[in-house]
């Protein structure tokens, strides 16, 4: 039950990040035109909300690797990175009817690297901050 709740939260975070991403893509697609002229199809929006939710849940499931205490953080991140990358590639190519192109592959990997760097960069910064905070408190004792 606890896991279900957490996976739902992760799915909702996925929607949040996905919608920011969606918004940025819409802005880029404008090519300098007025924002009022932007067109967003409801079907496309619903699809991306659902897809973001599923991606969020997938990231939660993939994060189980971080519970393996006997693995170093480096090993956990490497395994998590490749599991997520493979899933992301399958998802991206499925959207394009599995038509392969080097351009698409580069674009998909580039986007993934950017998302991963933002997510785990933020996590590592938070971790360093927590350790510093604890050390300061321990010094006070």
């Amino acid at each position: 039950m606890k896991n279900l709740g957490r996976s739902m939260v992760s799915g909702l975070i996925g929607i949040g990040i996905g919608m920011i991403w969606f918004g940025v893509e819409v802005l880029f697609s404008l090519n300098g035109r007025n924002i009022a002229s932007a067109t967003v199809y409801v079907s496309s929006l619903i699809f991306w909300i659902f897809a973001s939710f599923v991606i969020g849940i997938f990231f939660y499931v993939a994060s189980f690797v971080f519970d393996k205490d006997d693995w170093s953080l480096r090993k956990q991140i490497i395994v998590n990175f490749f599991v997520c990358l493979i899933a992301w590639l399958i998802f991206a190519f499925a959207l394009n009817d599995f038509v392969f192109s080097w351009l698409l592959l580069t674009e998909v990997i580039g986007k993934f690297l950017l998302m991963y760097a933002i997510a785990y960069g933020a996590y590592l910064l938070h971790l360093f901050h927590e350790v510093r905070e604890i050390n300061n408190k321990l010094k006070e004792k």
Partner: peptide, 15 residues
């Protein structure tokens, strides 16, 4: 926890 001197993040990312 009263005997912890400090935490250290080591090279492989463990604490």
């Amino acid at each position: 926890y009263h005997f912890i001197d400090h935490l250290e993040i080591i090279r492989n990312g463990n604490i």
